Computed example of a mutant assay.
Amino acid sequence: MRFLYLILCVLFFSCYSTTRNCSDFKTGKFYSEVTINGKLYKSNFYRNENVQVETYNNKIDSSKLRWINDCEVIFKTINPKNRAERKDVHLKILTTTDSSYTYEYSYVGETKKQKGIAYKAN
């Protein structure tokens, strides 16, 4: 009985795979939702291969992009106004659907990561 259970578990979990079509999200218009300490933050952004322009709370931020691979990118703020904005941000796409992706991000070199979801905007 245990052997049958073990085989069923292996078959079930081996069929599960995470979809990551990251190249579908390298360029375009998107909006993002991140929950931090129970508060939802939303932003809109446009991205091409080299630059991302984001609007949050009627404030526009621009970052240079350096793609590590199709699913990971480093953001460097173009005109940082304070020390926090000088820190580069590492973003990794974890999963994708046809219209969204789930990601995690952190300052480069830090272990604390946040998660969010970005959606294609029409």
Rank of each mutant, 00 (worst) to 15 (best):
L94F: 02
N21D: 15
Y16D: 05
N50T: 13
K39T: 14
F75Q: 07
T27I: 04
I78C: 08
V51F: 04
D88R: 09
Y103M: 10
V73I: 03
E72L: 04
N82C: 08
T102S: 11
N79E: 11
R47M: 08
S32E: 14
Y105R: 04
K112W: 13
E54D: 12
L8F: 14
Y41W: 09
K42S: 11
F30K: 03
V108I: 08
P80Y: 12
D88I: 03
D88F: 10
T19Y: 12
Q52Y: 04
K76N: 11
K59L: 12
Y41D: 13
T95K: 10
C15Y: 15
T96Q: 03
S100E: 10
V73R: 00
T35G: 05
F12D: 06
W67L: 00
M1Q: 10
Y16H: 12
A84T: 09
V108H: 07
I117H: 08
R20E: 03
S14D: 08
I60H: 04
V10M: 11
Y5K: 15
F12Q: 10
V51D: 08
V53M: 04
C15N: 15
K64P: 02
K42F: 07
Y46W: 07
D70L: 01
S63Y: 07
L65F: 03
Y101I: 03
Y107F: 15
E104R: 10
K64S: 03
Y41T: 12
R83H: 12
Y16F: 11
V53S: 05
S100N: 12
E33P: 06
N69F: 01
Y41R: 07
K113F: 13
F3N: 14
T97C: 06
N69P: 14
T55A: 05
Y105L: 13
T111N: 11
R66Q: 10
N21T: 14
D98V: 04
I93V: 05
E49H: 06
E110Q: 11
I78W: 06
V53F: 07
T27C: 00
Y56R: 00
T111L: 14
N48R: 06
Q114T: 13
K113L: 08
S100H: 09
S32N: 13
F45H: 08
K87A: 13
Y46C: 01
S14L: 10
N48S: 08
I78A: 00
K76D: 06
L6E: 13
R66I: 09
F25R: 01
T27N: 05
K92M: 02
T111Q: 11
T18N: 15
K29L: 05
D61T: 15
V89H: 05
P80E: 12
P80F: 15
E49K: 05
D70H: 02
L40D: 11
L65T: 02
S63K: 04
I74D: 02
L65R: 01
F13R: 15
A121M: 15
I36C: 01
V34D: 06
K113I: 10
Q114H: 09
I60T: 13
F75W: 12
N48M: 04
N69K: 01
R2C: 11
K112N: 11
L40V: 15
G28L: 01
S106H: 13
K120Q: 08
R86P: 00
F75I: 01
E33L: 09
S99F: 12
L6R: 04
Y56P: 04
F30Y: 10
G116I: 03
C71L: 09
V53P: 01
D24L: 05
K76F: 00
N122E: 01
A121T: 00
K81T: 14
E110H: 06
Y41N: 08
